[in-house]
Design a protein around this nucleic acid. Structure first.
Lengths: 208, 208
DNA sequence: CTCTGTGAAGAAGTTCACAGCA
DNA sequence: TGCTGTGAACTTCTTCACAGAG
């Protein structure tokens, strides 16, 4: 495989592959073909082979991919092979939901600290985590937290992002409906829930 | 403007434009240029003009776009000009958070019914809505609900999607981490929160 | 002058089609 | 035979660059 620029879209799909691979792995499946993977993900098998080929020849012609091996490889590509600690900022309804969200574990994420600015919430224990004052964002480096999840109102998000970046965070999952300005080295992924829903009616047959 | 296939990516950006237009509209701004819109959205001004030009010549050379007019036009394109009612299925932590989420209103969405299968939750009042038994999904058509939000565990999602489609729902916002098989006429948008986070480490400088 | 609208060029992403290995 | 890996073709999306309107 010669070097080529790897499409962001391919990176976006790797977690999809990982999810179904973990699923079939639990069922004891040893090998899986790109066609079977395509069935399970509803993607094109050519696309899947191409995506994987950017990183190496992981498969065996005539056989397919070894499930355990491919899981290991995708985890390595995505750098999921170490446990990652994230700070959650904002313990409103959405923040609380994320705190209890079981899905993060499968990719090796742990919410290791929780912050809010509401005095009524600070000091409160949720599960086995104590809500800290947002002004005490320090100690992130010491606690090896370099990811953060922002679940605050939009008006607070930029200010919090600035503070997080200053404290060494270099990846932010942002649920606030706004654009966050950060240094180039910091990666922001924004999930704007209402905005996702907003484009739905366009695809519906309903007239206006 | 001659007919061309409109990129899905352009549709995806229309709600972004709408959001910032509503924002500047509140501040009393009358007109806005593609360059200013680009500043506010962090997108390329050429791209913005191109996106809008697929639907008509909304701007005035030398002046820009009339904010109120463009808001009206984008709402029409996205078919957001009527109030849309959605059913929420699954009143766990995430479902509850979505029920109280204020962001839907700005695009004209209302959660008009809530369903769960937990007897402890059925009949309970949350805000001014009563949780209904999931087996009584009927009456959706009568209540003019044709959108649904699935916030259940993955194992339940497909079954619920089937029922929703049978009851006339033709747009589903799915938070369960799984692929939903639905008829072609039904539009599904899946938000897999953990999966979004899963591709973050790839972009970080951290070694594995 | 400023700013839109748009054909044309360029970049990115997908699919095809097949050589070659098991 | 079955399946991977991959150049090449194709499609989709983005950016450029500029004519023309205000």
């Amino acid at each position: 495989m010669r070097y080529r620029k790897i499409p962001d879209e391919s990176i976006r799909r790797l977690p999809v592959y990982l999810r179904v691979l973990l699923l079939v792995s639990e069922k004891g499946t040893q090998n899986i073909s790109s066609r079977k993977l395509a069935d399970l993900t509803h993607l094109n098998p050519n696309k899947i082979r191409k995506d994987l080929s950017y990183f190496g020849p992981f498969g065996t012609p005539g056989v397919g991919y070894n499930v355990a091996e491919l899981i290991k490889q995708i985890r390595a590509i995505l750098k999921l092979c170490v446990e990652r600690k994230a700070a959650l900022v904002g313990v409103g309804k959405l923040g609380s939901a994320l705190l209890g969200y079981p899905g993060f574990k499968m990719y090796g994420f742990e919410i290791a600290a929780v912050f809010d600015n509401d005095p009524k919430k600070i000091g409160k224990r949720i599960g086995n985590i104590t809500v800290e004052d947002i002004s005490s964002l320090g100690g992130m480096r010491k606690r090896k937290i370099n990811l953060a999840i922002i679940a605050t109102p939009a008006r607070a998000a930029q200010n919090i992002a600035d503070k997080l970046v200053a404290k060494g965070v270099n990846g932010i999952l942002n649920f606030a409906p706004c654009y966050l300005k950060v240094p180039k080295k910091v990666k922001v992924i924004t999930i704007d829930i209402a905005m996702e829903l907003a484009r739905m009616p366009y695809y519906l047959p309903t007239y206006c």
